[in-house]
Amino acid sequence: MQHKSLVALFLAALLGAAVGTGVTLGLMRTATPAQIPAPPVQPPLQPAGTADPVVSIVKRIAPAVVSIQTLTPGQQTFFGVTPPREGQGSGVIVTPEGRILTNSHVVAGSAQIRVRLSNGETLPGKLIGQDRRSDIAVVQVQGRNLPTAPLGDSSALQVGEAVVAIGNPMGFQSTVTTGVVSALNRTLAPEPGTLLEDMIQTDAAINPGNSGGPLVNSRGEVVGINTLIISTAQGLGFAIPINGAQRVAEQLVERGRVARAWLGVATVPLPEEMAAAVGLPAGTGAYVAEVLPGSPAARAGIQRGDIMVRAGGQPIRGADALREVIQSQQVGARITVEVLREGESIEIPVRLGEAPAS
Rank of each mutant, 00 (worst) to 15 (best):
Asp306His: 15
Pro84Trp: 10
Gly89Gln: 04
Ala18Met: 13
Thr148Leu: 06
Gly220Ala: 08
Ala137Pro: 07
Ile225Ser: 15
Asn217Leu: 14
Ala162Tyr: 14
Arg304Lys: 12
Leu6Pro: 13
Val223Phe: 03
Val291Asn: 02
Gln303His: 05
Ile346Ser: 03
Leu127Ala: 04
Pro33Phe: 14
Val222Met: 01
Leu280Asn: 05
Glu221Asp: 07
Leu280Met: 01
Leu15Thr: 12
Thr336Gln: 02
Leu15Glu: 15
Val94Asp: 08
Ile206Trp: 01
Thr24Gly: 05
Leu280Arg: 07
Ala259Val: 11
Val41Lys: 14
Phe10Leu: 13
Ser231Lys: 02
Thr177Pro: 07
Ala165Met: 02
Glu344Trp: 02
Arg132Ser: 04
Gln330Val: 10
Gln201Asp: 00
Arg186Gln: 15
Ser345Trp: 00
Ala355Val: 03
Ala64Tyr: 10
Glu161Ala: 15
Arg351Thr: 15
Val181His: 07
Gly318Asp: 05
Pro269Trp: 03
Ile240Tyr: 08
Glu347Arg: 15
Asn217Gln: 09
Leu25Tyr: 05
Val41Gly: 13
Ser104Lys: 12
Ala183Lys: 10
Arg186Cys: 09
Ala13Gln: 15
Ala298His: 07
Thr50Val: 07
Arg60His: 04
Arg99Thr: 06
Ala282Lys: 12
Gly26Leu: 14
Ser182Cys: 13
Glu197Phe: 03
Thr232Arg: 09
Gln112Pro: 03
Asn210Gly: 02
Val81Gln: 14
Val141Ser: 12
Gly87Cys: 01
Leu25Phe: 11
Thr194Met: 09
Glu161Cys: 07
Ser358Leu: 09
Asn207Gly: 05
Ala18Ser: 15
Ser218Gly: 11
Arg257Cys: 03
Val163Pro: 05
Val65Leu: 00
Val181Cys: 10
Pro40Phe: 11
Asn103Trp: 01
Ser345Pro: 05
